[in-house]
Design a binder for these strands. Sequence first.
RNA 1: GCGCCCGUAGCUCAGCUGGAUAGAGCAACGGACUUCUAAUCCGUAGGUCCCGCGUUCGAAUCGCGGCGGGCGCGCCA
Length: 587
Amino acid sequence: MTRPGAIASIARRISRRLLMELLLSLREEMDSALREALEVLVPGLGEESISRAVFGPTKSPEHGDLATNAAMVFSKEHGRKPREMGEELAARLGEHRFVESAEVAGPGFVNVRLSRAAFVHVLHCIGELGENYGEGTLGQGESVLLEFVSANPTGPMHIGHCRHAAVGDALARLLRAAGHDVTTEFYINDAGTQMEALGESFRQRCFEAAGMPADAEGTQYTGEYLAEFARDFVAGKCVEELQGMAVEDFAQEARDRNLQMIKSDLEHMGVFFDSFVAERDLHESGEVAETLQKLRESGRVYEKDGALWLVTDGFGDDQDRVLVKSDGAPTYLVPDIAYHHDKFKRGFGRYINVFGADHGGYPPRLRAGISHLGHDVSRLTILLLRLVFLLREGKRVKFSKRAGNFVALADVVEEAGSDATRWFMLSRSVDSELEFDIDLAREATNRNPVYKVQYAHARICSVERKGRGAKLRAAEPSGQVLERLSAQVERDMVLALAQFPEIVERSARELAVHHLPAYLLHLADLWNSYWSLARTEPGMRILREDDRELTEARLLLASALRQVLANGLGMMGIAAPRKMLREEEDA
RNA sequence: GCGCCCGUAGCUCAGCUGGAUAGAGCAACGGACUUCUAAUCCGUAGGUCCCGCGUUCGAAUCGCGGCGGGCGCGCCA
């Protein structure tokens, strides 16, 4: 059954996709211009070599808008002088319609000043692609299974999970934007000894809540949340009923309640999963047993000291690992390999796992197991996220799970809000530890980058509203319109907007989420500077009653900027508000 | 001891496959509110890019060797 709107929606998506392939980004246009020029200048240059030469933004306006190092890269291996090659390259590039002038500078850079047509092109792309501007075709529809968070259903999530949730969700959005077909998955560790311990802990809590003799302190999980679950659970139940329950029943109940709590917490961050896979199901379906059997058949296991060992040689591990202990019980490794066996059997193009860096020793043995099952382990990428520290009043809050005084994800999100929490969790490279300054995150001032960016977006919406009130609309991009956007800031803004697609592509390629917030902050700064020019120079106001043409040109630039801010925030899972109330108006 | 990550401005961190005078945010200092939302802007100051050697026309970036910090190296999960 197809809903009426669905076809139109699909048609729209297809045409956007087509448009995207026809409408190359400025960078793509310039790169292909460079390739064409190089193919003529340096015949026989392979694809491999050509890709080493690219255009990049310049640091100073004196060097034009874009620069390439191509002449320096290739002159050496072809026994030419860099500047001489640069001259030839510049001459060729100068013929391109997006190039106003190209000249050699320094040791052999070719600096390009872009033509008005190039600027028109950028604004045209943004206008045509709208909310799809920034998306790309890098992924080519390849399917990706992205696993993240996978918090144990034994208790609440802590601040570390916050980073995992934010990063995983943003990666999903980025990969989708880059043209991948992404499925997000949460793995539920609901089997083994920790479930038994959870069951016993919960049973004691229930007995306690029902006024029966109990030993809740002696159990493994002592958090208050279990006691709350217990009070809720025992309400209306008689003593006999509780006494008649097996540990497994208590474990089941606690597991369900914990999972519900985890899902609800993630919901508050706006994080939803496409799929949940339970370890228990892997046991019940025979998947775990099958995996163990297949591992035995692979010949990459052996018996020693009464235990079954997995050969990890060649996968970066420093020793082999036990699969089945001498008491006959499998280690955690077996179901985990089984889970990945299951993943691979589902046939995705690529698998990405987001793990904590404290599991750093884990990928080698996991990869070994998967590989022994005959899967192409190069399709699996494991991302290790470093620790998060909560900073309150300028000091790191000490926390440890054992002491039970950890910082709960739910509390952080409630205190700082989902938007600010996400922003900070995404703002650092995953290889760096992250200091989360909660006082800064909850501040609604200019010190807080997320508000600065959201404010810039809201401000643009505000000026657009005002413009609409006066029947002023954004102009269609054209050479004539661009002629009116001649200020250096305006030039800088268009150039910055042109970078968005490559920022997205690079982020997706590197699985690095932190470029986006840095870029968006830069855009917001540009806009705020632009906006503020009017304070000392009334002619720089966006809305000029005395110059309709200029106003509509500036509204074009403003709306393009709003679009990119909104698209970028969207990829981070952060709202792009159309309005932000000032504190005194906040009622 | 071995493996991975980090070491860049007072603090927290960016610096893409090596590229032109090293950047941002916060903090500091000096300015700007009869606003198209000052939740903002302008300006100033601030760095032996941990150290050494090497590769290169060119190194914060690559290689090697140190130093300092984090994490990981269980028949725990």
